[in-house]
Design a protein around this nucleic acid. Structure first.
Lengths: 189, 189
DNA sequence: GTCGTGCGCCTAGAGATATTAGGCAATTAT
DNA sequence: ATAATTGCCTAATATCTCTAGGCGCACGAC
């Protein structure tokens, strides 16, 4: 009965890696157990159930994404910061598609509050420091930015931009230009 | 052995309704069979497998959404058209959450081509007629608009805007104002 | 060092879902 | 009316989730 050194953390990371390989929907207790060479039942000492496992992957991914974005954002301001944030966000989604998909899991309010979701909002607000926006315009702008980032990445991943000549990279760059324009010319209420 | 009058179409609609009730992930062959009071196996004369069933729901939803948007768009132009499109899009997602979730299913390129996805792009382009945009700016703008619509709706649905005072409706309205501004001031390449 | 004790992984098993193969009866075509 | 077809059935297998309970290895207590 060789011990495999299972841990909630190690199981979560393995599940996240698996998600990146085969898609977040493929993250199954059986599949992760297979990775470790143990029986399905053995994982239930470390995770509560599949939902718990997937939630843990989501929380992990949110934290990692926040780290990546924070690193890219360091020392930048204005449009520079906007582009750095956006590119880091999109790059993470590209490099870790399964983890990124996990970040879109609907979390319990308590779990969400304890997660890195707040860091995302804070960093988005930090970008806006380079633009002159008061509340509630700032909140509206945060939501717009997040919508564009997530929406673009999500549509790009689900193949929404494939049937045309225009490269997805080029449109992304122009979308950021457009956001910069609108943040500088935010319409009055 | 009473016949239930199963049809691919009726099965698909039942699956879509079920999706709206319990979520798109809950759309299962067994669950739909239960709705009709037949055995699971009986559905396989009408659908190929679960994936096929879900794809059919997605295609149905794309067509319905296109219908709703087209109706809202009729006779409008400029910002009026932009707001009508966006509101119809968001309203559909709110009223038919399961169907809307289905529209984000990754479709095979052939299926996607045969679906109403093209109508969506065409209608988005129609909006842009009210703004002076040439290619490739037009394609970039289409992608930006779609990203905002989908991104906002998706984040709203997954609870992203819950922890603040600002109403989701208000931010949505301002996001559309912002899009109008940027379409009128599209940055030069 | 050895002796527990507990933790880590196991076996066993039940319930759901997906899917295939093949059958009989109800409907439709002739 | 009879033949052909179609619609739903039973049966069976595989995969996945999850619970209950067991056994031994590794650690701390002494």
């Amino acid at each position: 009965m060789a011990r495999r050194g299972l841990t909630t953390q190690r199981v979560t990371v393995a599940a996240a890696d698996l998600a990146d390989e085969i898609g977040f929907e493929g993250v199954t207790v059986s599949a992760v157990a297979r990775l470790f060479g143990v029986r399905d039942a053995s994982l239930y000492s470390h995770i509560k159930n599949v939902q718990d496992l997937r939630t843990r992957v989501a929380v992990l991914a949110l934290a990692e994404l926040a780290d990546h974005v924070a690193a890219a954002l360091a020392g930048r301001a204005g449009k520079d910061a906007l582009v750095a944030f956006a590119d880091a966000y999109r790059a993470y989604a590209k490099e870790y598609p399964g983890r990124y998909a996990a970040t879109r899991l609907e979390l319990d309010p308590e779990v969400a509050a304890a997660s890195a979701a707040g860091r995302h909002a804070a960093m988005t607000r930090a970008i806006l420091r380079g633009y002159a926006l008061e509340e509630p315009d700032q909140t509206d702008a945060v939501r717009l930015l997040h919508s564009v980032f997530h929406g673009y990445v999500s549509l790009e991943r689900s193949g929404g931009f494939q049937n045309t000549q225009r490269a997805a990279d080029a449109s992304w760059s122009r979308a950021l230009d457009a956001l910069d324009v609108v943040l500088n010319n935010w319409p009055p209420a």
